[in-house]
Write a protein that binds this DNA or RNA. Sequence first.
DNA 1: ACGAAATCTAAGCGCCCGCTTAGAATGACC
DNA 2: GGTCATTCTAAGCGGGCGCTTAGATTTCGT
Lengths: 237, 237
Amino acid sequence: MRASDDAARAEQWAEPPEQARPRPQDGAAGLDAAEARDLAQAWLDEPLAPAARRLLTGAVEAFAARGYHATATRDIAARAGLSPAGVYVHFPSKEELLYQISLIGHRGTVEVVRAAAVVSDDPVHRLRAVIAAITAWHARYHTTARVINYEMAALTEQHRAQIATLRREIDSLVRQTLEDGVAAGVFDVPDVRGTTLALLSLTIDVARWFRATGDRAPEQLGELYGDLALRMAGHRG
Amino acid sequence: MRASDDAARAEQWAEPPEQARPRPQDGAAGLDAAEARDLAQAWLDEPLAPAARRLLTGAVEAFAARGYHATATRDIAARAGLSPAGVYVHFPSKEELLYQISLIGHRGTVEVVRAAAVVSDDPVHRLRAVIAAITAWHARYHTTARVINYEMAALTEQHRAQIATLRREIDSLVRQTLEDGVAAGVFDVPDVRGTTLALLSLTIDVARWFRATGDRAPEQLGELYGDLALRMAGHRG
DNA sequence: ACGAAATCTAAGCGCCCGCTTAGAATGACC
DNA sequence: GGTCATTCTAAGCGGGCGCTTAGATTTCGT
């Protein structure tokens, strides 16, 4: 048995220990440097006041580590270096924080998927590119991905419906690619609906187990999953 | 576009709305008849006092619907028809409830997987049977599966370590089956570790999206996923 | 330099949390 | 039918929750 086997199992099965109570001003508690950099980068394009950005990234970390309902607005405020009341200058409620995180996160995913979809008209190349892109995104931004995939039930009904629209777009694109491949005779898919479900399932679950400290880079995982997707689509490589 | 397409997308993307506050004595709030029957069945073999069993099944429902941290012990007590203090006659803490749920759930999964593994020595039949079994279990007992897969971080360190042992057994069995198939020349798997990860990922994510009200029976889904597993393993059927 | 707008804090409101305690009901056994 | 362990409830403790309010401080166009 190779030494990396244990690491692999830990990667799959171990949940991160619940975070210690954050110290004030400790904006990136519990995140390693690479993860914090990626997280900050991911939110750089959003037109936000610095304090609002710190609140959002702090909320992502807290929600991912302890769950939405278990996270106190006081914790989020402390991560952003604000007093408990400081949160409500920028966001009217804790749920609004989650909604904004979910919105920005889902829009980012949709953009990544769209970009991957236009690289080629060939269903084979397109399926591999799309699945690789979704997978790499879920790995690189696994903290955000955790929140937007596993805390949807905490959104209000209206917000959840709005997010569902974005998710449907991703679903449609994967399904359409499968159908195109079947029509072109390069895929063999007896159950397009079920296989679409399985493909997205595979990429979403990455958010549950992926750790930046593992030995697998997001893009490497993306390529592996892209190849697995072609196999699942019945493509004879 | 077929009418069932919308249902399929809902199946994949929609989270169940947060449950209404349970009424006292309402032991199966939010579960349909089939789901409640399955849940009760799953716990029938456990040697437990009736009240303890009602507390455990009530806790499963509550944890699955709203999350561990968001669930009040008062809610669990009400589902079991007890006063808030009645919980502590049977369990010393809320975490102990989660631990017992996790233990019973994981033991059940391991049993199901072991039973599927002995049906055949042929890696092809065995992989299909094992993946189909895990998938069907996660679909049939998706309420329990949700709790034991997504609330692990809420366990104490000792309890989490104990559960990890059971999970490692499942991981080993899938990995060994892949390796046997490669050695026998019936599988083509460039990355056994990553493919094992992906296979288990696929089955676990069923707990996130599966609804008993969907048009797909647990065993049907198991067969679909068993076939997908063989494709992912590079078996030429 | 100054007044207004934006941003932030100290304090705290009403409520719900996990869990404990004291003692009442229950039921199996002699 | 009395005994006693078990099971349960009513009441409540200390504390944390989301969020509000009143007012201090900072920022900035003029």
